[in-house]
Every structure is written in C-alpha cells, then in structure tokens.
C-alpha cells in the first residue's frame, strides 16, 4: 500500500467513566480512502471510541486529530462540519420527518441561510435548497430509497432506516464516515449486500470506519482492522494478519457465536 494521507489519528486516548476504563491508551489512525474495520467483543469500547471521535465524550487523556488538527474542545456540530459523520448503533432518525428531510438536515450542515434568508426567499436560500434537494435525492437513489423519499422515517422498514442513516450521514459531506454496526439485525444476504454498498461508498471517495461484529464480513470489506478488548487495542493489521493473531483468537473464543 502506498503512503496515504492520514485522515484521523487517535493518539493514546484514555476515557474513564467513574471507575470503569472504557478506553485504555488506545492509539489508531485511518488513512485516506481506506475502510478500517473495528471489531471486538460486546462492551469492548467500540461505540465509545466513536463517541470520542465525534466529540460526544472528551477523552480523559490523549488526543484525537483530524487531518492533522486536534479536535479537543470542538462542539459536536463543528466536528461534523469539519468532515466526520456517523451513524448510530441504535437507529436514531428524525422520526416525524420524511426520508428526504432527514437527508436535508444532513445536507444543511454546510448551509448557512437563516431566518432572514428564509423570510425573503433570497437567492442564497433558493440555491441552498436546490443544492440540498439535489444532493439528497442523489444520495437516496444511491441507497435505493428514491421511492421512499416522502415517506416518514418512522414508517420505513428496518433495513431502509439503516440505509437512510447512512445517506443522512453522507449528506453532511464528510471525509470520514463512521458506521456503527450498520448491518446489525440484517440477515446474511442483506449483510453481504450492505458490505458491497459500503465498498461503493468508499469508491466515491469517502474514508470509512466500520464497526461490525461479523468477522467474516469484516475480513471481506476492510483494508485494515483494529481489535479492541476491554478498552485496549489488542491487535491491528490486515485482515489476514488479524485472522491469525493469537490474541484475537483468544478474545473471540466463545464470543464468536453469540456475536455473529
């Protein structure tokens, strides 16, 4: 693999909740254009790592850098505008809004028209609305949701909701897309389809950080994998290296069944 720019660096991050150390001196990095897998047993700290990266939690110590800039102290929405977007392990769509409107909220991340633009329907307002609709419909099409655009998010099927979450995150125009178990609750066939979709997402120029329990699937789509256990990074490498890593095998022994 050629030297690529580092999109994200997590540098020796520790996060404690009271007595519990959810992340323990975790360091990792993501290169531009790759799909980095993050795996680990339940409670390993994967979602917590997402939360630190997206600014939900401030690390107890250590630093997160995005494109070389530290993220410490930035508000969540500011981090999103810098170019990190995410989905949620438990779907969190805006239920009373339509699929398209959900995506528009994401697209609005880079818009700035406020009350006055809206009141006077300024050219900026119209430009941003058009831009948002265009981008939104394009993303819905990419996710295969075109026919559901005017449906309320709450009324979408489970799978469509998962895909809509990805579309909404992509609409914020991120450099790095963090997907937290996007295939959870899918049957094997749907999972394979989703992984194909994620590859296509990468091919559009996004860098992807993917949490997924299913080892086999992860091996298939990722370029590199980071393994967490009890908040510690226990391994990192290509799928082939991870497969043969004794520590990973130990961590997953007996866990694999119920997790996949």
């Amino acid at each position: 693999m050629a030297e690529r720019a580092r999109v994200l660096e997590v540098d020796d991050v520790t996060l404690r909740f009271g007595g519990l150390t959810a992340l323990d001196s975790v360091s990792l990095h993501i290169d531009e254009g790759e799909i980095l897998g993050m795996i680990g047993p339940n409670g390993a700290g994967k979602t917590t790592a997402f939360n630190v990266i997206t600014g939900v939690y401030q690390p107890t110590s250590g630093a997160v850098r995005f494109e070389g800039q530290p993220l410490a102290g930035l508000k969540k929405h500011a981090i999103t505008r810098r170019g990190i977007a995410r989905t949620f392990q438990n779907i969190r769509l805006f239920n009373s809004m339509t699929a398209l409107e959900n995506v528009l909220v994401g697209a609005d991340a880079h818009h700035s028209s406020g009350v006055l633009s809206a009141l006077f329907r300024t050219s900026k307002h119209r430009r941003e609305e058009d831009d948002g609709h265009e981008r939104g419909m394009e993303l819905l099409e990419f996710m295969g949701l075109t026919s559901r655009a005017d449906e309320l998010a709450a009324n979408l099927s489970y799978g469509d909701q998962r895909r809509l979450e990805i579309a909404r995150a992509m609409a914020t125009g991120p450099k790095l897309l963090c997907l937290d178990e996007p295939a959870a609750g899918f049957n094997p066939q749907e999972k394979v389809q989703l992984m194909e979709l994620i590859k296509r997402v990468r091919d559009r120029g996004y860098t992807v950080l993917l949490i997924e329990h299913d080892m086999r699937l992860v091996m298939g789509v990722t370029d590199r994998i980071v393994v967490l256990e009890f908040g510690k990074k226990i391994a990192e490498g290509t799928p082939a290296e991870i497969r043969d890593d004794p520590a990973v095998i130990a961590a997953y022994l007996g866990v694999d069944e119920d997790a996949s």
């Binding site: 508000k75 969540k76 929405h77 995410r86 239920n95 809004m97 909220v105 994401g106």
Partner: peptide
C-alpha cells in the same frame, strides 16, 4: 421560516437533540 433550513433544524432538534447535533445542527 418553518419551510426552510431553520424549520428542519428545529424539528430535528425536537426529535433527537444529540443526533441533530451530530448531523451538524
């Protein structure tokens, strides 16, 4: 105003404040 970025931002915030914030609102 309701039918604009502002209205959407309000509705998203009302529905799920954390998620809205993480979507750049």
């Amino acid at each position: 105003v309701k039918d604009s970025r502002v209205g959407r931002a309000w509705e998203a915030t009302r529905e799920d404040e954390d998620a809205a914030e993480l979507m750049g609102v």
